[in-house]
Amino acid sequence: MSGNGNAAATAEENSPKMRVIRVGTRKSQLARIQTDSVVATLKASYPGLQFEIIAMSTTGDKILDTALSKIGEKSLFTKELEHALEKNEVDLVVHSLKDLPTVLPPGFTIGAICKRENPHDAVVFHPKFVGKTLETLPEKSVVGTSSLRRAAQLQRKFPHLEFRSIRGNLNTRLRKLDEQQEFSAIILATAGLQRMGWHNRVGQILHPEECMYAVGQGALGVEVRAKDQDILDLVGVLHDPETLLRCIAERAFLRHLEGGCSVPVAVHTAMKDGQLYLTGGVWSLDGSDSIQETMQATIHVPAQHEDGPEDDPQLVGITARNIPRGPQLAAQNLGISLANLLLSKGAKNILDVARQLNDAH
């Protein structure tokens, strides 16, 4: 009898209710805020589980004197976190989706994509230029951005401005803007500013005609071990179906173009009346040469937790077992079709030249 009692006690200790789920994140304040929001949602869904947040620095956090596009290494903000995932030191990792490459290392998958916040870019102005827009900034004003995508589009749109690289986390960039006289304004992701509670610093939100956004911008991705079915089931509740389908289309477009950090590629997606609209573009580094096109596809946005595919093969690095396969494939095909259209119009040449120029500098 006593033996059975011990077995029952052991089973209770090993039951999922007692389990601590370890969540990996970057150390920056924004990353911690984003991770806290994901953990809060998981806690609400699984009140019996405990969650421990483990923060670590990544290569991208450490190399702050070089433009991201020049470092010449993929997975700048993800490699150390993936290493911890691989060694079973954490069970899942919360990322900004735009930091996750469209091809993940073997053994990993994006197990959830959370509801997207505003994906557009924002302009934050130096205190002396508050009330201005990019259009009304004085001639030769210097605007800071760490992104080739932003610089290429904005140089084309605002030729009277000069664009220079600015690195560091959000706090560091804002301090550089406010305390030094080098920059009249800087460009940042609206979602990051909003998550930090800095709505009052948003001086201008850039519309798609001015600057399309990065693939996955404004959404959070939760990376897990691809074979860890328990954790895949656990994080599945975080999937937002519309965000998922938009981001599958965007990531398929980028992957098929073979774009990345070192080339200016941008997108804009919208879901309306059962249609998914995808606009994508590529630019030369100075913005003088560009190709942009829009395509659409009829896609039914499923309700969360309709029964999805059981075999769960990944699409552009994403596993969404609780979302039907048909809409996911339709979104992926839309991204591939748009990429093929741009490639047929000469996108590869623009991107190759951009890559060579970026590598040469």
Rank of each mutant, 00 (worst) to 15 (best):
L238H: 00
H83T: 12
E82R: 08
R195W: 05
E82D: 10
I21E: 00
T133E: 12
A55N: 08
L238M: 15
E80I: 09
A31M: 00
D359L: 13
N88I: 11
A151I: 05
E242R: 09
R321P: 07
S96D: 03
D230G: 06
S337R: 14
D91F: 00
V143D: 04
Q180V: 09
R173Y: 01
V237P: 14
L334T: 00
Q34W: 00
N88A: 10
L351T: 13
M271I: 15
P309Y: 02
N169I: 03
Q304G: 06
A252G: 06
A151D: 12
A152S: 07
L76Y: 07
P313F: 02
D230Y: 06
E117P: 00
P324V: 08
G192L: 01
Q314I: 06
F158K: 06
V316N: 02
I33Y: 15
D352A: 13
N333T: 01
L170P: 01
G216P: 00
P327N: 01
T145F: 10
K74Q: 15
Q217W: 02
K176I: 11
L244S: 14
R167A: 10
H83Y: 14
K348E: 10
I63E: 02
D121S: 04
V316S: 08
P241H: 08
W283Q: 11
N349G: 11
L170C: 09
D352I: 01
I110K: 04
L85Y: 01
E209P: 15
T190C: 14
R355A: 03
A31R: 00
G308W: 11
G274N: 00
R26T: 00
G221P: 05
V94S: 01
L315P: 10
V143I: 12
G60V: 11
R22S: 11
D121G: 04
S45Y: 13
V265L: 10
L49D: 08
A252H: 02
V93N: 08
Q194T: 04
D289Q: 15
I53H: 02
E162A: 07
T279W: 04
A219C: 02
G60M: 00
S288C: 11
P127A: 06
F108I: 14
Y213Q: 06
P324K: 08
S37C: 11
K115S: 14
R246G: 10
I231R: 04
H256Q: 09
A191H: 01
I71T: 08
N322E: 13
H207R: 07
L334S: 08
G218F: 00
Q155E: 10
F129P: 00
I166D: 00
A122E: 04
E82H: 03
D311E: 14
R156K: 12
I33K: 01
E162R: 11
R164C: 10
M271R: 08
L315C: 15
N88C: 13
A44S: 12
S57K: 00
S96C: 07
I248E: 02
S69T: 11
I53A: 08
K79I: 09
V263S: 08
L341A: 01
T243C: 01
R195M: 02
D359N: 09
L232Y: 05
C211K: 00
P119E: 06
L174P: 03
K115H: 08
N333D: 00
G48W: 10
P159A: 12
E306V: 14
A112E: 03
G221M: 00
S262N: 15
D311T: 05
S344C: 07
Q153G: 07
K348W: 14
L254S: 05
R164I: 09
L177W: 01
A266I: 04
A266L: 02
F129Q: 13
D91C: 05
G192E: 08
K157T: 07
P47E: 01
G168P: 03
K74M: 03
V215P: 07
P106W: 11
H199A: 10
D99W: 02
A214R: 00
T102W: 02
L285I: 10
V301F: 14
S337L: 15
A44I: 09
K74T: 07
A44W: 10
V222M: 08
R32V: 09
A122P: 05
P313L: 12
S37A: 14
E223R: 01
Q29G: 14
L137D: 03
L137R: 05
D307S: 08
A360L: 06
Y46R: 08
L100P: 04
G216I: 00
V39I: 06
R251D: 02
D312L: 05
V263L: 12
R355W: 15
T279M: 05
R321N: 06
R32K: 08
R32P: 00
K98H: 02
V316R: 13
P119S: 10
A55I: 08
T102H: 14
V316G: 09
L244F: 02
Q328G: 08
A31P: 00
K74E: 00
T25W: 00
P264K: 05
I113Q: 04
S165W: 05
E139T: 08
D240E: 15
Q296S: 08
A303G: 05
Y277L: 12
M196P: 00
R173T: 01
L85I: 07
L315F: 15
P309H: 10
P119A: 12
V282K: 04
E182D: 11
G60A: 05
V282E: 01
K43N: 11
L220I: 01
E86A: 13
L206W: 04
D228Y: 03
L49C: 00
A354G: 15
H239R: 02
F108N: 09
A249D: 04
T319D: 07
L334K: 02
K157Y: 12
K348Y: 02
N349D: 12
T66Y: 06
V23K: 00
P119T: 12
A219L: 01
A40D: 11
F129A: 06
L64R: 09
G221L: 05
Q275I: 06
Q314E: 14
N340S: 08
P138W: 05
L234V: 14
P241R: 03
S57I: 01
N169L: 09
I71K: 12
V224S: 15
A112L: 07
M295I: 11
C261D: 05
Y46N: 14
H256F: 14
L97C: 07
I248P: 02
R26S: 01
P101M: 05
Q229R: 12
L154H: 09
K98W: 00
H126T: 08
G280I: 01
I205T: 10
A219R: 03
Q304L: 05
N340W: 15
R32T: 06
A44N: 13
A226W: 15
V130T: 08
V90N: 04
G107N: 07
T279C: 02
M212I: 15
K98V: 02
F108M: 03
A330L: 13
I71D: 07
F77Y: 08
K74V: 04
R355D: 15
D36L: 09
L245V: 09
H160T: 14
G24Q: 00
A44Y: 13
A122V: 13
P106E: 14
L341K: 12
L244M: 09
V143A: 13
I63S: 10
E293P: 01
P138Q: 14
H160G: 11
G308N: 13
P138M: 12
L154V: 10
V202Q: 06
L232G: 13
K140T: 11
K157N: 13
D228K: 03
V90Q: 05
Q50S: 01
C211L: 10
L97A: 11
I336S: 15
E162W: 04
A331D: 07
H95F: 11
A252L: 03
L42K: 02
L85S: 03
I323E: 06
E293K: 11
T243G: 11
R251W: 10
T145G: 07
D289Y: 11
A303L: 15
T133V: 08
K345L: 12
R225G: 05
I299D: 13
A330D: 12
P105N: 06
D359K: 05
I71M: 15
V124E: 04
I318M: 09
T145H: 04
T294Q: 03
E80F: 02
